[in-house]
């Protein structure tokens, strides 16, 4: 019973959504392989989050707890996770392709000497029960089917907002296994001296279901207010093109695209964005794309499911009004 493992990333005491999405798909693999589905929580105090992982499909939850694991560090978490993996030898180990999920998985793959596929959009088993994944390359211009060598665990990180989580079932109680890791200061080596919060309470762009993005067509930072209002009505967050970020109108963390974030929301509304290839690289797999642009020739319209050719300064405020009306019906 080797097991399929999912690394359960958490922030501020909450498990990140992508973890549940992976559990949903990994459950199918576990059933097919006849192995158990396990989740791994690492931190200072994590046991309280275990039941939720059970509700989303984990049969077993390893809770790796130590004071020195209070905040994420590459070294500390790598040591804790690798030791556990070497003890139990799972066949497959999955992560969310978040900033820290990618960071941790790469270091772990290096230490264990196993293959890792980044930012996958599909996971499956081949006939021999070996992991096989689908992942975008060249900023989504091509997709690759990737197979792994026999070295286990076979590892992959999964892009957020792509796989579907199961409906949680609170009656499903996981077996909780407490683990005291052997992590020393020389394993951690670095020190996190501060974490500066910039995002507020809103979800990160990579996890948002609805994104309203503005580009150079917004003409200035103050005008993003109308996008904020639309986003508030829709329960979404605001993103930006590189042109808007480089102009200093929005922070770097808002940038969508090849040199920014790759996002997969249910709805992406591009306002005053031309649709350069590097921008499309970041949002081209959104489920529904809307473009609001006064230039009918703008390339964004080739990708958009719904296009509005008009002045965004007139369309966006009305759209917010209309959506508010519809939502209150």
């Amino acid at each position: 019973m080797a097991g399929i493992w999912v690394y359960a990333e958490h922030r501020d005491g909450n498990i990140r959504k992508v973890t549940f999405e992976i559990l949903g798909e990994a459950k199918k693999l576990a059933e097919k392989k006849g192995e158990e589905l396990c989740a791994v929580l690492i931190g200072a105090e994590v046991e309280g989050m275990a039941s939720k992982l059970g509700a989303y499909g984990a049969q077993k939850v390893y809770c790796v707890e130590a004071d020195c694991l209070l905040g994420y560090t590459t070294g500390g978490f790598t040591k804790a996770l690798c030791d556990l993996v070497q003890q139990h030898k799972p066949s497959i180990l999955l992560f969310g392709a978040t900033t820290n999920g990618k960071d941790l998985s790469a270091r772990v793959a290096g230490r264990l000497g196993v293959g890792l596929a980044t930012d996958c959009t599909g996971i499956a088993l081949d006939d021999a029960g070996s992991l096989q994944v689908r992942r975008p390359m060249f900023a989504g211009k091509v997709y690759a089917e990737v197979a792994f060598s026999e070295a286990t665990p076979q590892m992959a990180s999964i892009r957020p907002n792509v796989l579907a989580a199961m409906t949680p079932d609170e009656t499903r109680k996981p077996e909780v296994i407490k683990v005291t890791p052997d992590v020393k200061p020389e394993d951690i080596r670095i020190e996190v001296t501060d974490v500066i919060r910039t995002g507020g309470e809103k979800p990160d762009l990579t996890e948002a279901e609805i994104i309203v993005s503005g580009g150079r067509g917004m003409k200035g930072p103050e005008n993003f207010q109308i996008l904020e209002e639309l986003a508030d009505v829709l329960g979404g967050v605001v993103g930006a093109s590189r042109a808007a970020v480089d102009a200093g109108w929005r922070p770097q963390s808002d940038q969508v695209g090849q040199s920014g974030k790759v996002v997969t929301p249910n709805l992406y509304i591009a306002c005053g964005i031309s649709g350069a290839i590097q921008h499309l690289a970041g949002m081209g797999t959104s489920k529904v794309i809307v473009a609001i642009n006064k230039d009918p020739e703008a390339p964004i319209f080739k990708k958009a499911d719904y296009g509005v050719v008009d002045d965004l300064f007139k369309v966006v405020p009305s759209l917010a009004e209309e959506c508010k009306k519809l939502k209150s019906e």
């Binding site: 091509v142 089917e145 060598s149 990708k303």
Partner: peptide, 25 residues
């Protein structure tokens, strides 16, 4: 290498979208 690309493919093309009609913004 510990991973191997079996096959490449092009992403699915998005179907042509709709231009939303109306006389005013």
């Amino acid at each position: 290498s510990l991973t191997q690309v079996l096959k490449y493919s092009l992403p699915p093309v998005r179907g042509a979208g709709k231009i939303v009609q109306g006389d005013t913004p």
